[in-house]
Design a binder for these strands. Structure first.
Lengths: 227, 227
DNA sequence: GAAACTCGATACCGACCGGTATTGAATACC
DNA sequence: GGTATTCAATACCGGTCGGTATCGAGTTTC
């Protein structure tokens, strides 16, 4: 795809009143609609006509911005996963003491779990798609490795800055974090009452004994009295 | 559906050589084929013609035994989930000392994760289907609660018989077990190298400190042989 | 052994979906 | 201001799938 250097060398000189939306705007509204429709009905069960309609457009608009349905799905996942990881890590980076860190991580993950159940379903279906398409699978594997690496770096910072030691290699801690987040999201999706809001936080403190120590030193009871 | 009382009041008196398979045999072979085909290509992406062909039959045979595709899927999941749970719990019940228990649970779950990746993908898609069908969702929720209850009973036995105490309420431990098993299976599905075989075992021992104590007293390394 | 019944194969229908060719309008360029 | 180009709406095609009607072979019953 030839990229149009509008932003750099060619100011679009938007003529005050514009009847037709920018190509970029159209593309983005299609992506937003795709996230909504796919999340609601699933990828395979959603037609491009539905997606286009949700964006206030028609199928022609979709095919004008994306080569195929697969291309749209790929772009959507790529797009959303990116901002999702950065958002999650922002909570860790912003914290300054262990208590805040554990709370932030747990809070972010739990909120994701609750409010973005649709995203988790989408991700699950995407994983299934990837299994059938080796190219997609390899891409997803690399992306997943990158995400884990980012978490590993965050955990490493936690160790160096706060002296928190983990009972497992941080690479395995990262895998565990993803697995727990996804797994609990799945259970929560089918039965929200079965997954207490503070469960993930409790498990995280259990898996980071040093954090517990620090918390207890601060006069906090991380387990909330659930002996 | 009127049930045919063949087994109780009407012995089928199988006439030595039988050309046409029993209704029950046909139904079972369709179910087996469905597990294979759905597991490979996904439920939505598989046609009933494919399923029937894999069973050496045609679509007519499927519709002769199942009212609809949804009905087939429901029966398949119901069927397989049942024998899966009983198989998992059998490993726990058969064990007599904590070392064996932890190893059995971890081994069973890991083996499921590795060898039955197809089933986990199927389950994931089934969860997604359930989200769109309230009736299916409620049924799945109840089934899930039953499965958790079975695990809770097993954990309770562990506590009473071996004195193992868990750092979380056993109801939450059960949820955690499911979430971990599924979550790690998903990660393993996309990148097997990222999930060490013994990771689940290590986490389980971390979550059951008493078991660790007992294991150390016995001079055993709990992370040793998770085949 | 023949009638009544069961069950699966075959053929087919209606609907839907991904993708394409074309067309007309909005925009950019000169 | 006139022309070339971009972009989305429309119409349509090929193909597939779930589901149904029907028919014939296999089975049970009397």
């Amino acid at each position: 795809m030839p990229d149009s250097p509008t932003a750099v060398a060619n100011p679009p000189k938007t003529p005050a009143s514009r009847v037709r939306p920018t190509r970029r705007e159209t593309r983005q509204s299609v992506l937003d609609a795709a996230l909504e429709v796919f999340g609601e009905h699933g990828i395979a069960a959603s037609s491009l006509t539905d997606v286009a309609a949700a964006a206030g457009l028609t199928k022609g608009a979709v095919y004008s911005s994306f080569a195929s349905k697969d291309d749209l799905v790929l772009a959507l996942m790529e797009d959303h996963a990116m901002q999702r990881i950065t958002a999650s890590l922002a909570g860790v980076a912003a914290a300054v003491d262990p208590h805040e860190i554990v709370n932030n991580v747990a809070a972010v993950l739990v909120r994701e779990m609750r409010t973005d159940a649709a995203w988790h379903r989408l991700l699950a279906e995407y994983f299934a798609m990837a299994h059938r398409d080796p190219r997609l699978k390899e891409a997803l594997r690399e992306r997943r490795a990158e995400a884990r690496a980012a978490v590993v770096r965050a955990l490493d910072t936690l160790t160096e800055v706060h002296g928190i030691e983990f009972p497992l290699p941080i690479e395995e801690m990262a895998v565990l974090l993803f697995a727990l987040s996804n797994g609990l999201a799945v259970e929560s999706g089918i039965d929200p009452d079965a997954v207490p809001d503070d469960l993930l936080g409790k498990v995280l403190t259990l898996l980071a004994p040093e954090a517990i120590t620090l918390l207890n030193q601060a006069g906090q009871d991380p387990t909330g009295g659930a002996a």
